[in-house]
Write a protein that binds this DNA or RNA. Structure first.
Length: 508
RNA sequence: GCGGCUAUAGUUUAAUGGUAAAACCUCUGCCUUCCAAGCAGGUGUCGUCGGUUCGAUUCCGACUAGCCGCUCCA
């Protein structure tokens, strides 16, 4: 009965629905938009808040071993030096304007061709096992080509980050062999930079955080000194992070301002990290299922050992099948005690704990599940979106668009609908029920147009239930109303106590 | 950042070198006893800036944004 749209059009349909129904708008749209930034409209803001709340409740409030944290977005610049982000974010790149190739400046080597002490030209080569040899061969070829007499000096390879401005236009592109098409190395700075205080100089430079995780490491001692946590324990945080991505893509999947939900789970240095790692991967998978993501769309990707950062013991990504491909949703990394050690060294403040059994100090290791709220939100939009054929009693077939959100995260839990707008007893009862529900749940009151139209409108918003106040409600004993279920479109009669019991069970 | 394609109402799309049309959505009123009914009405600076032209939404350029491919994703 479900007719899945073509993947190519599916994303367009979802983007268009998200705009039309007030889930997601482009940022600053009246000024032409801003690449990589988005606004969440009324329904989107509710949906996002529900995802955050579910995570926070399950991760922090319903556990005894994890505490919450909200650290500042702008931190001391030394945090990012210690974490490796300042060194890591700068990847100088060189473009060849002729061939449109792009090279990392530290992997593109060149050398001056020196004959009898005089520079006669330049040669270049990409980094290889024998870069110097290739450059030497190229230099000899150049000398022959130019028919220059004399003694060729041994080449002195340098990479493009060391090229002087006047040399760059003389260095041939590896693609064309001709000089003049290479650009100077340009850095692609992934961290947003700002200045703290009125003075703008080198000493005032600060960064918007590119991840929330460092907050947990930097406040590690504060938390252990002020709360009664005992290993193993976790510190969790939800918050905005910022990365100046070169190419934001795929709607809200990769944006420049995004929201992370990260947790650092600290374990003893002798603990079985692999077992703990596996437990957290399973926990994350179960959590994703609990908010309605289908198991069929989830998979695991274990990063190959040779591609891991040197300090990492293992990273597994939980992948989600988006319309544009299988992409990383949730990364669960075993980071050893690299981060705490880095901060201990950089700050000079030990980050260790005391083991009462062995009477020794140690720096705990950490398992880090890190997920993006926006990526989850996009996943539930994609997984929940369906266009269905609906056949009525007369045999006419129509289509309805529905977002099958889990009741846990649905932006609107219940829509209260008087069957008719112009019958006051109906609207009075409906408004009373609406007001009562509103005290605990996100609900909507709608009396516009025909009842069927209102059902479809709620389908597009992903509202799991509609209750309709009809003539039976006000004329017959029992004060029951029609409960209409979104996915099955089935109806049954229910009273107020039963409705609240249903919500209590399904919305948690 | 590079290359290709694209930009008309909230959405999806027409037409046109002489200031634009349809459907859906949305809002107001009437009507309506359960799955997008009907009737009457409201809502538009053709992405931005410049050029060519008597006149540009239409042709040209730049910018901005989107899609695809590179590159990047620490």
């Amino acid at each position: 009965m479900s007719s899945p749209a073509e993947p190519a059009n599916l994303m367009e349909a979802i983007v268009s629905l998200a705009k039309r129904r007030g889930f997601i708008y482009p940022s600053s749209e009246i000024y032409g938009g801003l690449n990589g930034f988005f606004d969440y409209g009324p329904l989107g803001a509710e949906l996002k808040k529900n995802i955050r709340d579910c995570w926070w409740n399950d991760m922090v409030r319903r556990r005894d071993d994890i505490v919450g944290l909200e650290s500042s977005i702008i931190m001391h610049p030394k945090v990012w030096e210690a974490s490796g982000h300042v060194a890591g974010f700068t990847d100088p790149l060189v473009d060849c304007k002729a061939s449109k190739q792009r090279y990392r400046a530290d992997q593109l080597f060149f050398a001056a061709v020196v004959v009898d002490g005089k520079t006669v030209g330049y040669v270049s080569a990409l980094e290889s096992e024998n870069t110097a040899g290739e450059l030497q061969t190229a230099a000899e070829a150049l000398k022959r080509k130019k028919a220059i007499q004399g003694t060729l000096a041994a080449v002195a390879p340098r990479d493009m980050t060391e090229a002087k401005p006047e040399e760059i236009e003389l260095i041939p592109s590896p693609a064309t062999g001709e000089p003049g098409s290479l650009t100077a190395p340009r850095s692609f700075n992934m961290m947003f930079q700002t200045n703290v205080g009125a003075m703008t100089d080198a000493s005032s430079v600060a960064y918007l955080r590119p991840e929330t995780a460092q907050g947990m490491f930097v406040d590690f001692k504060n938390v252990t000194d002020t709360t009664r946590v005992k290993l193993p324990f976790g510190i969790a945080q939800i918050g905005k992070s910022f990365r100046n991505e070169i190419t934001p893509r795929n709607f809200i999947f990769r944006s420049r301002e995004f929201e992370q939900m990260e947790m650092e789970y600290f374990i003893h240095e002798d603990a079985d990290w692999a077992k703990c790692h596996e437990e957290w991967i399973a926990w994350c998978e179960n959590w994703l299922k609990s908010i309605g993501l289908p198991e069929t769309h989830l998979s695991r990707y274990a990063h190959p050992k040779e591609k891991l950062a040197f300090y990492s013991k293992g990273t597994v990504d939980i992948m989600f099948k988006y319309p544009f491909g299988v992409q990383e949703l949730w990364g669960i990394a075993a980071r050893g005690n690299y981060d705490l050690n880095q901060h201990a060294t950089a700050s000079g403040k030990p980050q260790d704990l005391f083991d009462e059994t062995s009477k020794k100090k140690f720096v705990p290791h950490v398992i880090e599940p890190a997920v993006g709220v926006d990526r989850i939100l996009l996943a539930v939009l994609c997984a929940g979106y369906a266009v269905e054929d609906v056949t009525d009693e007369k045999g006419n077939t129509e289509q309805r668009t529905v977002l099958r959100f889990s009741p846990r995260i649905a932006p609107v839990k219940v829509a209260v609908l008087p069957l008719l707008k112009n019958k006051e007893p109906l609207t009075n009862r409906a408004r009373a029920l609406h007001a009562k529900l509103q005290r605990r749940y996100a609900v909507q009151y709608d009396d516009g147009g025909a009842i069927g139209k209102r059902y479809r409108r709620q389908d597009e918003a992903g509202t799991p239930w509609c209750v309709t106040i009809d003539f039976e409600t006000i004329e017959k004993p029992g004060d029951t109303f029609t409960l209409r279920e979104r996915d099955s479109m089935k109806q049954r009669r229910i009273n107020e106590a039963e409705l609240f019991a249903l919500l209590e069970e399904q919305v948690y």
